[in-house]
Every structure is written in C-alpha cells, then in structure tokens.
C-alpha cells in the first residue's frame, strides 16, 4: 500500500529494492584502496630508503622503471580514489540535483587537471634530459 506524500522517506523507498546503481562506485573505491595499500607503503619506504632527498637522487630514482611505473600508478590510483571518496561526501551533503551535478563537475575537472599535471611532471622526469 502506498501512502503517497504522507509517507516518510523510508516508507517511500521500502520494498522498491536497490537503486540499481552505485555498485561500480563502491567497488572502485575498494579496488583502488586495495592497490593503494601496497603503493603507499612502497612510496613511504622509497622516501625513507633513498640515500638522499636532493633533486638529483629523486630524479634518478624516478627515471628507472622501478621508480617511474609505481609512481605513475600511485598518481593515477590516488586521484581516482580521491574522486570516489569525495563523491561520497557530495552524495551525502549535496541534496539538490543541480548543486550535486555542479560539485561533481568541479571534482572531476579538478582531478583530471591535477593528475595531468602530476603525470606530465613524472613523464618529464622519466623521459627528459637531466635538468
């Protein structure tokens, strides 16, 4: 039986089943977090194990495939994980559809721009002539 407008929010959705969307967001957040367990430990361990933190030493580290490839993954997965995490904020605190869309747009644009800069910098270090 439907109570229409008089029903509570819970009453309106009870029995309708799941929304049918959102599973991908949930899985993406967990998959990136699983990868970031290893990558963040690698990042911290590398910083601690490098003989020095001057520009030359870090450059040499990131020119080697063993440095550049995990760093590329670290950048990409961090930005994806940050987007998925921030989506959880947006879905919880932005109730108006228009505001939610605007926040979503700003989030994705900022993340794509930021990750492009980070990856460009890494590529320049890895492939460039030694600055």
């Amino acid at each position: 039986m439907s109570l229409g407008e008089s029903a509570t929010s819970l009453g309106k959705v009870r029995g309708l089943g799941s929304a049918g969307v959102g599973g991908e967001h949930w899985i993406k957040e967990r998959m990136t977090s699983a990868a970031l367990i290893g990558l963040s430990i690698w990042f911290l361990a590398s910083i601690l194990w490098l003989p020095s933190l001057d520009q030359k030493t870090i450059g040499e580290w990131l020119r080697a495939p063993t440095g550049a490839v995990p760093m590329a993954l670290f950048i990409i997965l961090n930005f994806i994980h940050a987007v998925e995490g921030t989506k959880s904020w947006i879905y919880d605190y932005f109730h108006d559809d228009g505001n939610r869309f605007a926040a979503h747009l700003i989030l994705v644009f900022a993340a794509v721009l930021g990750s492009a800069f980070a990856l460009f910098a890494l590529a320049k270090i890895a492939f460039g002539t030694h600055p």
Binding site: D54, A82, F117, A121
Partner: peptide, 27 residues
C-alpha cells in the same frame, strides 16, 4: 580523506613538478 585529497595531492603534484623543473625549483 579530505585533507589528503586537497593538501596531499596538491603537495604531491607540486613536488613532482619541482623535480621536473630542475634544482632551483626543487630548492
């Protein structure tokens, strides 16, 4: 999570850019 997203990723990106630009920017 919010702090790591905003400050953490900004710092990571700036750090990589400064290494790419050379010793002066890194300094």
């Amino acid at each position: 999570g919010g702090a790591l997203t905003i400050a953490g990723l900004a710092l990571l990106t700036w750090w990589l850019m400064s290494i790419a630009e050379g010793p002066e920017d890194y300094a």
